[in-house]
């Protein structure tokens, strides 16, 4: 599968590593140049595009037209929602997942915003703790 990851921080690069191990083709869009350069060195099998993932031109350059899945995992919730909206409705990507940074923002991560699956670290962690430790 061809996966386009937007956001090359800890979440994005870890996800890229897992997908590579499973034999998928991975492209990462990263906004900060230094991080993009470091990613290229650390992951030679990943295509790294330096640019803003909410810019349609950058998404096209990163091959969004051929992607089977887009993962919007930047540290900003509105940015992730713009990316999923563009991916699903402007570029017709079959599936999009998004990272929820602030649990208060969960209500916005809905199919109408292009989100097929919302990943909410804080919520998962909190539920796990309350369910298993209390």
């Amino acid at each position: 599968m061809r996966v386009l990851i937007v956001g090359g921080g800890q979440v994005g690069s870890y996800l890229a590593g897992l997908l590579l191990e499973q034999g998928h083709t991975v492209t990462i869009i990263e906004m900060h140049e230094a991080t993009a350069v470091a990613l290229r060195h650390a992951m030679p099998n990943v295509t790294v595009v330096h640019g803003n993932g909410t810019d349609p031109g950058v998404l096209e350059m990163a091959g969004i037209h051929n992607a089977n899945l887009v993962a919007a995992v930047t540290g900003a919730d509105p940015t992730n929602l713009v990316i999923t909206s563009l991916a699903r409705f402007a570029f017709n990507v079959p599936r999009a997942v998004a990272r929820v940074n602030n649990p208060h923002n969960t209500w916005m991560f809905i199919p109408e915003m292009g989100v097929d699956l919302a990943l909410n670290q804080a919520e998962v962690l909190a539920h796990l703790i309350t369910r298993t430790m209390l």
């Binding site: 909410t54 900003a76 509105p78 929602l81 713009v82 909206s85 916005m108 809905i110 109408e112 915003m113």
Partner: peptide
Amino acid sequence: SDDVNIVAARLARLV
């Protein structure tokens, strides 16, 4: 913020 404006506008319309 462009991102905030776009998300807010889409939510206002769709939700």
